[in-house]
């Protein structure tokens, strides 16, 4: 099983998903992230899905789980770079990703975290 690398930039953790995610990888990523947030005392998490071609309910739910979990650990999550086809499919599927913040690209995601105060 492949693991998704987690990079640290300042007090932000960056997860850039470049592979076709299988369920075990998704579960491992959730665990790894929780540990890294505590370890690094990160205040923000950015999940970059620019390269992700499909998000099904399992992967979609991962975003919501990571967001709730990191919030408990005092970090804010932003999902960036969702492709139009993926967004349309998620809406059709009926998955709302409730509570997950999104941004068009990595740069805007960073800005969103920086302007952090009113995020909650």
């Amino acid at each position: 099983m492949e693991r998704v690398p987690i990079l640290k930039i300042g007090d932000t953790l960056l997860v850039s998903i470049q592979i076709d995610l299988q369920d075990q990888t998704v579960l491992a990523l959730q665990e790894d992230l929780a540990e890294r947030i505590v370890q690094t005392q990160a205040r923000g998490v950015i999940i970059d899905i620019t390269a992700v071609e499909i998000v099904d309910s399992f992967i979609g739910r991962m975003f919501a789980t990571i967001a709730s979990m990191s919030r408990l650990l005092d970090a804010e999550t932003v999902v960036v770079g969702m492709r139009p086809a993926v967004a349309i499919t998620l809406v059709e599927l009926g998955l709302s990703l409730g509570g997950v913040r999104t941004a068009l690209d990595l740069e805007r995601g960073m800005k969103l975290l920086d302007s952090g105060a009113d995020l909650r």
Partner: peptide, 27 residues
């Protein structure tokens, strides 16, 4: 997912429709 995407691309399905059918297959 990969097999479905391959065939969907082969019949030149639109990107949105490809994504939909691959997602359905994944579920």
């Amino acid at each position: 997912r990969q097999v479905v995407r391959g065939l969907a691309a082969e019949v030149k399905m639109s990107l949105v429709d490809q994504t939909k059918v691959v997602t359905a297959a994944s579920e």
